[in-house]
Design a protein around this nucleic acid. Structure first.
Lengths: 153, 153
DNA sequence: CACTCTCGCGCAATCGGCTTGCGCGAATTT
DNA sequence: AAATTCGCGCAAGCCGATTGCGCGAGAGTG
């Protein structure tokens, strides 16, 4: 991966709809080598896929809630059932197993607090949880799907 | 927004590279009305943009850290300088102002703990912070950019 | 030092899918 | 019941993605 590839990835992470020639001009190549590099990056799995990003407000999911979950049932079976239940909830857009105090961290998007409460009830009825604490986001200051390209080999 | 639009948005959020005809077949329309609906959704701003998603491991940013920040300087000027500093850090991929205990929550991606420490130092030298606590993600169980379509009007 | 081999770029032609104009039918209004 | 509007599907046109090929730079070797 050289400087050309990095520039291409920067472009595609910002705007994947841009015509190939425009990207080529931006990175300083002609269309065909630029296209071949993109194909290679896709074949290698560096580029996983292309998606459309929607406006949360227009989709009526302007409220973001971070939910910290603690459990006292540290068994593989419990974890499996909890994960299986959570991943099917469409309002849960991120879901991590954590180190430290909280065992799991969820990011949930909903239209309002009432809708969050419905998701919350769905969560606690799936499996029994030791502690669940919610923190509401007041403002989304930065949100990007673009990963830094400086670390890539 | 009707069932057709919702299906189109579901498709485009999963795979925006799919040919128009395939999307049309999936939602049960022919190519031209499908295309016109997509154009309308883009003009309305429902579809904000199309981006490429990269593999974090292949980009050497497999480590995710959530950073909770508390401040004791609750002035507009402090907030502005802090935000301006944070948004320019490419490793910070999400940045929220929160309610409750923590004032700000950051999601940071880095190759390893040493790299996180460099970002941390860059953070605390930009402005003075009252409290900073980091939580490392052990496992990314779910990550999607797809918003639920059920709430849209 | 020269020769050769390899790799990746740019050009140009081709191909496929996006884009658009138009006629038709369904649903709603008067 | 007639008229109007709205959105669908069809088919043609067009633009950009895709590919084959020749060339030149750089690395390796006699």
């Amino acid at each position: 991966m050289d400087a050309f590839d990095r520039k291409i990835l920067l472009c595609l992470q910002e705007n994947a709809a841009e015509p190939l020639e425009a990207i080529a001009a931006r990175v300083g190549l002609s269309a065909s080598p630029c296209w071949r590099r993109i194909q290679k990056l896709e074949a290698q799995g560096v580029i996983q896929r292309r998606v459309a990003l929607l406006d949360p407000d227009r989709m009526r999911v302007g409220v973001t809630v971070f939910v910290s979950v603690r459990t006292n049932r540290h068994t593989a079976d419990w974890a499996e059932r909890f994960c299986a239940a959570v991943v099917t909830i469409p309002e849960v857009v991120e879901f991590y197993r954590m180190s430290g105090e909280t065992d799991y961290l969820l990011r949930i998007v909903v239209p309002d607090i009432a809708a969050y409460d419905r998701v919350y009830k769905r969560l606690i009825q799936s499996v029994d949880l030791y502690d669940v604490s919610s923190a509401f986001a007041m403002e989304r200051i930065k949100y990007t799907t673009a990963l830094p390209v400086t670390y890539a080999e």
